[in-house]
């Protein structure tokens, strides 16, 4: 399944008068791996949440393929069928086993029990945790948990993966493993991947880097003084 195309047109998001994102326009081509960087509080999480339909823009439009994400009335099926999320925190449900966590999306999608098991086993194999299928999250290390979270994000065979600081709490070896995993997914499935991260290693793996400062998007290759044109520039497919 090819990756999704993502299109943002002058997307703004405010919370109680404060603008968190200002007129962000962006185009991501299918199969691209985009690194999103920026200081804390600049709006990275907010942007990923808007694209993944967890939040709605105050103004502007967001299209993932031809789906108008900004105005979805029932976003659940979009999240289930199109997007795979990896969060920095709150990765796993503590009362469910590793395997059940991976199957979570598939339960919502009414995938048969047998199919769910097969897919979960395959994915846990891929992230090197097949042996831990029946463990509870509390029995895993941080790196292992994040790998389970990635396996879960992949379970629904998403066209778009949104990862919010997936290596934020991991050491460099564990982080490297996560990046390898995401790269191999992109390699094999052509999945589009947006990653928000401070991790300098991400830059070398990604096709393209974007940075957000104070809710405004820029391509770091451009000079910081670049004017409004840069948004239009960003829209060109890399």
């Amino acid at each position: 399944m090819p990756g999704s195309q993502v299109l943002l047109d002058r997307v703004s998001r405010s919370h109680g008068g404060t603008q968190i994102l200002r007129e962000v326009s962006l185009q991501v081509a299918p199969g691209e791996l985009v690194a999103l960087t920026g200081p804390s509080g600049s709006g990275k999480t907010t942007l990923l949440q808007l694209i993944g339909s967890l939040d709605r823009p105050t103004t502007g439009s967001i299209y993932v393929d031809d789906i108008p994400v900004h105005s979805l009335r029932r976003p659940a099926s979009f999240r289930r069928d199109v997007v795979g999320f990896v969060f920095q925190l709150h990765h796993l449900l503590p009362a469910l086993t590793v395997q059940e966590n991976v199957e979570l999306t598939l339960v919502a999608a009414h995938v048969s029990r047998r199919e769910r098991h097969a897919r979960a086993q395959e994915l846990l194999d891929e992230v090197g945790l097949r042996q831990r299928s029946h463990a509870l999250p509390s029995d895993l290390s941080g790196g292992e948990r994040q790998r389970v979270a990635i396996a879960r994000a992949l379970a629904g065979r998403p066209r778009l993966i949104l990862a919010d600081e997936p290596t934020g709490s991991l050491d460099s070896a564990a982080s490297e493993r996560i990046w390898k995993l995401l790269l191999s997914v992109r390699e094999r499935h052509g999945t589009t991947i947006l990653v928000a991260s401070h991790d300098p290693n991400l830059r070398e793996h990604s096709d393209r880097g974007l940075s957000i400062i104070d809710g405004q998007l820029s391509e770091p290759s451009l000079t910081p003084t670049a004017d409004a044109d840069r948004n239009r520039h960003n829209q060109e497919i890399a």
């Binding site: 659940a76 099926s77 999240r79 289930r80 999320f85 709150h90 979570l104 919502a108 999608a109």
Partner: peptide
């Protein structure tokens, strides 16, 4: 709440 938020984020509908 965090658990239900997560379920919602991975595609569970409100009724589910």
């Amino acid at each position: 709440r965090a658990e239900f938020a997560l379920m919602s984020a991975v595609g569970w509908s409100g009724p589910q």
